[in-house]
Nucleic acid binder design. Structure first.
Lengths: 118, 118
DNA sequence: TTGACATATTCCTATATAGGAATACAATGC
DNA sequence: GCATTGTATTCCTATATAGGAATATGTCAA
């Protein structure tokens, strides 16, 4: 079997650095025409269109027709699943969670001590 | 050109669902032998070893020899780049940022009003 | 209609997988 | 040494790209 399709999920779609660049180019939430994006990411127009298609298929961007242009906009909500997944690991490196860890360790110790005690 | 190598960066390594499963199986920060992981993710042992190799090459897991076993442990810090990247978009869906948005919009409006006014 | 501009699609190819099967390598116990 | 257990690697194949080039589609203007 080959690798999962890029359109399989957001994670796969964003595994491609150029697509992340495109997302970055739309980061402010504004709309951008394809040519505008072409200039920002410095890639041939067909490639930009192809990457945008993938992003569209996983719902990371939305499109809107506007005369002869097509305006793309970031749909940030689509990134939430990824954020949720990695966030559950944030405690492994963030200092903010040091105190929480102490509490959890404490709970764990108590629970183990209680084990079968009831 | 084909897709970027899975070992190119953490994002590509984790684009594979099975590898995310493996990471999840190590989520508690503890060490696990390969066979233990094999049972958890219900995948043939060679595949698990191959996926672990990829994860090791991007630094998502660490290994340690222990007799005839090899103990793998999650290196959460390696997930930070991904977290940082998606987090910068969190404001696009999180209610927590609604108020911040108001402030930023306000600043923006003022700036635009000021534009060239000096 | 014709032309110019904006964007999408098609065809092609080299490449990197992921999975399966078989096997190699390593450490332990007898 | 030899069998056993635990893990990694190799060989094979089908498949999905990403990029390049050329071209198709769509829209506006004169």
């Amino acid at each position: 079997m080959a690798r999962a399709a890029t359109t399989a999920d957001t994670f796969n779609a964003l595994a491609e650095p150029r697509r992340r660049q495109l997302v970055d180019a739309l980061a402010d939430g504004g709309e951008r025409a394809v040519n505008e994006l072409v200039h920002r990411v410095e890639l041939p127009q067909p490639q930009v269109s192809k990457h945008l298609r993938v992003l569209r298929e996983v719902g990371v961007v939305d499109v809107r027709d506007h005369g002869r242009q097509r305006l793309y906009r970031l749909n940030g909500r689509a990134l939430k699943p990824i954020h949720d997944w990695v966030s559950s690991y944030e405690r492994l490196w963030s200092e903010r969670f040091d105190e929480l860890d102490l509490v959890l360790d404490d709970l764990k110790r108590k629970e183990e001590g209680d084990d079968g005690g009831e």
